[in-house]
Simulated scan of single mutants.
Amino acid sequence: MGDGRWRLGRADGVPAVERTDLLADPVATALRSWDRAGEAGVIEIDPALADTATLSEAYDLPMEAGGNCVVVMGRRDGEERFAACVVRADTRADVNNLVKRRLDVRKCSFLAVDRATAESGMEHGGITPLGLPAAWRVLVDAALLEQPLVVLGSGVRRSKLLLPGPVLAELPGAEVVEGLGV
């Protein structure tokens, strides 16, 4: 059991820095060099429970505490532009308006699963904003910063990260965006 810092619903996390074996390699690497790593917790879960609604029900987690991360891509003058959008689980990323404008592209769409997992080094359903390729922008919905604790992917489906909401603004490369989740 954890020390209570990362307790939410029926989930009780332990320090992520002590259980990097529960993280995808890029996430563990990024965590080791992040100055806020001590505020990250991790819970081990059954991979069959990794999807947001299932996890929420199994662990009695409020949907507004869930942080879903989706990867999108658009092109401008032949250049690919990527963004990982982190929004509350009870919303969807405003890809066709806000994200498209932020990336300054004509059309923005979800990155194909095969490509997202290959380029991130993370599993489908576990992609998280920590440890992504440096060229990818990380857009974080401002609404998540209001949550005492946010549940995020860990790069793998067998665990979840737990971070205090305000700390999301301190993720490497994070850009806090008002109204990202609609």
Rank of each mutant, 00 (worst) to 15 (best):
G2D: 11
D3W: 15
L8I: 15
L8K: 05
A11W: 15
D12R: 15
P15K: 14
P15F: 15
A16I: 11
V17G: 15
V17N: 09
R19Y: 14
T20K: 14
L22C: 10
L22P: 08
A24N: 13
D25Q: 14
L31T: 06
R32M: 09
W34C: 04
D35E: 14
A37R: 15
A37P: 05
G38V: 09
G38Y: 15
E39F: 04
E39H: 14
E39N: 03
A40D: 00
G41F: 15
V42D: 02
E44D: 08
E44M: 13
I45V: 13
I45T: 06
P47M: 10
A48V: 09
A53P: 00
T54N: 02
S56M: 08
E57S: 11
A58W: 14
Y59V: 01
Y59N: 00
D60P: 02
L61C: 10
L61A: 03
L61T: 00
P62A: 09
E64M: 05
A65F: 04
G67Q: 08
V70L: 15
V71K: 07
V72I: 10
V72G: 04
M73N: 02
G78D: 10
E79N: 04
V87R: 07
R88P: 13
D90T: 07
D90K: 07
T91E: 04
R92A: 10
R92S: 08
A93I: 11
N96H: 15
N97S: 09
L98N: 00
R102L: 15
L103R: 01
L103H: 04
L103N: 03
D104N: 12
R106M: 06
C108D: 00
C108H: 01
L111Q: 03
A112L: 09
A112M: 09
D114N: 11
D114H: 13
D114G: 10
R115A: 07
R115S: 10
A116V: 04
A116Y: 12
T117Q: 10
T117G: 08
S120L: 12
S120M: 12
G121K: 07
G121Y: 13
G125I: 05
G125N: 07
G125Y: 10
G125Q: 08
G126P: 09
I127A: 01
T128Q: 05
L130Y: 11
L132C: 05
L132A: 03
P133M: 06
R137A: 13
R137E: 12
V138N: 02
V140Q: 03
D141S: 09
A142Q: 13
A142N: 03
A143Y: 09
L144M: 06
E146S: 10
E146I: 02
P148G: 03
P148D: 13
L149W: 04
V151S: 00
S154Y: 06
V156D: 01
S159V: 00
K160N: 01
L161H: 06
L162R: 02
L162M: 02
L162G: 00
P164K: 05
P164D: 01
E170M: 05
P172M: 01
P172R: 02
P172G: 01
V176D: 03
V177C: 03
V177A: 02
V177L: 12
G179A: 13
G179E: 12
G179F: 04
L180T: 00
L180Y: 02
G181N: 05
V182E: 07
